[in-house]
Design a protein around this nucleic acid. Structure first.
Lengths: 132, 132
DNA sequence: CTTGACCCTGTAGTATGGTACAGGGATTAG
DNA sequence: CTAATCCCTGTACCATACTACAGGGTCAAG
């Protein structure tokens, strides 16, 4: 099980060193053990967590949202019903985003199809498919 | 064809009055015609545009991204190839987001399933399914 | 014809999510 | 053993996307 310095973790995850320390301050990643010198020593699963944060951010989740997602786990101290309730709420959010993205995809595909047809087609802003 | 004041548009779209003026300054919505008094008079399609902006923001697009999306249209003055290229790039972005969201959905569903099973299951952070 | 809700411009302040030093100690390649 | 490169804390600054006035004009109900 490899352990990383903050710099190695930064290179592997694509985040900056300062960003990783920022996430620690914000409670998104646990405070890692330190060497005698004070250097942080990260267990390798921190890498997966950093990648998860990057992905979730790209999907429009705030760091606060992401913290909530990361805290969703089946732990002995929490009631199962509570976790299920929160997970189901998150699934609802995710599915709403999926719906919107699928509408956007359809609109964009329609746009390229109109373009490929090379007809005049006039204006075709993609909002047509997303005005709800 | 109804026309709205900025306040009506704000109530209907869920955006604030100041936000709408901000979007105008940033070029996300066109400068509307004015009454003699200087009041903005919005055509009703501005409502669809504001809703599109809200949706796109929820999906992790920046205002800059959204401006690019809104400028994608089949217009006589632009080359078809150029529009297709930009639309296809946006489709790529959208599909990448769709993939990530589907992975996240699967992980969350798995989490609730483990929960429903009511077994001990130990820790089950959703990052397990998203470490890529 | 006034009073309260609305709108105008302009500027300044806020929250989020970083990013960049400064000043100083630790590590490692040669 | 020393120079380059890393890491530490702490503070300050930055971009994005709003949000909140201030100071003043407009509109519409009673």
């Amino acid at each position: 099980m490899p352990a990383y310095t903050i710099g190695q973790l930064a290179r592997l995850s694509g985040a900056g060193v300062e960003t990783i320390r920022y996430y620690e301050r914000e409670g998104l990643i646990a405070e890692p053990p330190r060497r005698a010198s004070g250097y942080r020593q990260y267990p390798d699963d921190t890498l997966a967590r950093l990648r998860f944060i990057r992905h979730a951010k790209a999907l429009g989740f705030s760091l606060k949202d992401i913290k909530e997602l990361l805290e969703l786990r089946v732990a002995p101290g929490t009631t199962c019903a509570d976790i299920r309730k929160r997970a189901e709420a998150k699934i609802g959010e995710v599915r709403a985003k999926l719906d919107l993205l699928r509408q956007m995809e359809r609109a964009l595909v329609k746009l390229t199809a109109a373009c490929r047809g090379r007809g005049p087609a006039g204006e075709c802003p993609i909002i047509d498919a997303l005005d709800k």
